[in-house]
Design a protein around this nucleic acid. Structure first.
Lengths: 228, 228
DNA sequence: ATTGACGCACTTGTATATCAATGGTACAAT
DNA sequence: ATTGTACCATTGATATACAAGTGCGTCAAT
């Protein structure tokens, strides 16, 4: 496990959650591997209670299986859950953008604008590492503008399933296209063009399509036996 | 609090969650009222641990506020959350039905059919009490058929916000319309008619529209001061 | 070699006690 | 009226213990 420092004033539970999520997304915690509350609390330097609470949360999004009286395990990658997280993001983000179109006249897009400027800066200066965070921020900003943060959090929790597959993927997203996608989306939303915005969102999210078949074959042990 | 027996083999945490949710939805637990882990564990005959775990879950869907070192409280009814839960259901259920339309040729609708038959039976025999459960079952069946149960659970958790307002509402839904809506939806999905199914879902869910303004005025103390 | 019984080790679920940190309250002092 | 102080209740977290259930190894019987 890749363990880093606990933030100031971060609760033990949030700390455990943060570290666990990161290690699950990066596959440092191998799908199918067993955990135990005791083992984890020792590794994290916490007691069982906050670790247990974190595991319960991860169990709720079905990324951790809790087998009573036996142990816990990192769930195998379930294509159905990956598909469902993709579905959720597609459906929700389309609806969010359509909503943003309706509200456009009353919205302040300056945060999104500033974010875009930064994206362009990092592209020009060849610093693609920062882009993923900016990408997330950009999308989240529309949930915030439309007052749908709870929806964002629901979607975000499911995204872990997709992140694991992305970690296995060799296909990287073309940064320049991403940024121009974002520009186009913001333009459409500003113009209140729902159909255009929805179309762009779908096109944008489809860039993250991954060659799941090849990955599945190469890393068969990480996946649930059921076919998709 | 309205407390009932614990089911056989129900974990203490699930029991606490079930009782709390029911009492929150029915407003038996008054919006804005304070709770404490100790008080609740005494009332439920459990220890702090499972009660605390239940409160953490309710806090995550923002129906319970946890104020560290001060206590917990039943959140006031927040119009934004109510609106967001309505938004979520509308968006997700529309997408689910469209998906079901695509998959229609491969789906087995016999469970939904049987449910509809029962709905008709209860209408004819004037037993509307059973209808709400059947209503829920009917909708859940489409999430199951399209393999989107996790999506269902996310939506379900947010529904608590809406349920509280519905408990205050005097406007009852017309049962007969509900059943005929369901029939029409199933027909459209069978026929694979996405546009029709989506339209029917929106129309159906709009029947649950509630006179929020009047309720807000009558029960102002239950609501957050912010306007919607 | 196979089977069956048994017990051991381990895990989660739960209970309980305890302490730290902190916001609220009551009350005295001014 | 304001301020300061002591006290209390509450959650966050730790530690410990026990119950119950699972899996595994041992060992005897066959």
């Amino acid at each position: 496990m890749n363990i880093t420092e606990r933030y100031a004033r971060e609760t033990a539970r949030d700390y455990a959650l943060r570290i666990l999520k990161r290690n699950i997304a990066s596959l440092e915690l191998v799908p199918g591997s067993m955990l135990s509350e005791n083992e984890l609390s020792a590794a994290l330097g916490l007691s069982r209670t906050p670790v247990r609470e974190a595991l319960i949360e991860l169990n709720k999004i079905r990324i951790v299986e809790i087998l009573p009286q036996r142990g816990s395990r990192i769930a195998l990658i379930d294509c159905n859950m990956v598909e469902e997280s993709r579905f959720l993001r597609m459906v929700l983000e389309t609806a969010i953008m359509e909503l943003a179109c309706e509200m456009a006249p009353t919205l302040d897009f300056s945060v999104a604008e500033a974010n875009l400027k930064l994206q362009q800066f990092y592209i020009e200066n060849q610093l693609p590492e920062k882009l993923m965070e900016l990408d997330n921020d950009f999308h989240r900003e529309f949930y915030r503008l439309t007052n749908r943060m709870q929806t964002y959090h629901l979607q975000e929790s499911m995204a872990l399933h997709f992140d694991r597959v992305r970690s296995l993927s060799l296909t990287t997203v073309k940064e320049i296209r991403i940024v121009s996608d974002h520009e186009a989306i913001l333009r459409a939303v500003r113009a209140g063009d729902q159909a255009e915005a929805a179309m762009l969102v779908v096109k944008h999210l489809n860039r993250y399509k991954i060659d799941e078949k090849a990955i599945r074959e190469q890393y068969a042990a990480y996946f649930t036996p059921e076919r998709c």
